[in-house]
């Protein structure tokens, strides 16, 4: 169990003069994001959010595809034509990657929710998410389609 003087908290002396107004000596402070060393886990946190929003937006394409199929042969041909085109494919490949990345990122969240995975293994999990998402996307697009 981490105590307040361990990562990620900083002690008063570590941020010289920034919090002079605070009377309490030695009180744990939340350092501003800008003074953090960039870490892979921080990048992963924001990428989870970005992929989440990307997946959200992309559901519009899913609805288009399904609704077109329900409407008519002509409408469905237009949709299938779009997704068969290189630009449509690029969107689908991006969506596949975002989905796998977000899915594996979600599994990391489950580990954290169980109270585990806060030690150095967080770096392993982060890199496994990146590697896993690329490999799974590759498998789908190179071998299955």
């Amino acid at each position: 169990m981490a105590t307040l003087d361990q990562w990620p908290f900083a002690r008063r002396g570590q941020i010289e003069g920034a919090f002079d107004a605070m009377a309490e000596p030695n009180r744990p402070l939340s350092p501003h994001i800008l003074i953090y060393k960039q870490e892979i886990t921080m990048v992963m946190s924001i990428v989870h959010r970005i992929t989440g929003v990307g997946l959200y937006t992309g559901t519009a394409f899913l609805v288009w595809w399904l609704a077109a199929a329900a409407i008519s042969d002509g409408a469905f041909a237009v949709a299938q034509g779009f997704f068969g085109h290189w630009f449509g494919k690029l969107i689908l490949i991006g969506y596949t990657w975002a989905l796998f990345h977000h899915l594996l990122g979600g599994l990391r969240h489950f580990v954290w929710d169980l109270g585990k995975g806060y030690g150095p293994e967080r770096y392993t999990m982060a890199w496994a998410t990146i590697g896993g998402s690329v490999v799974l996307t590759g498998i789908v697009w190179l071998f299955l389609i």
Binding site: T59, A60, L62, V63, L66, A67, A69, A70
Partner: peptide, 18 residues
């Protein structure tokens, strides 16, 4: 809600024969 409803109705229509 729009995504959920339109996708569901489309799927049901396809399921019942298009």
């Amino acid at each position: 809600f729009g995504v959920a409803i339109i996708a569901t109705v489309s799927l049901l229509k396809l399921s019942f024969g298009g």
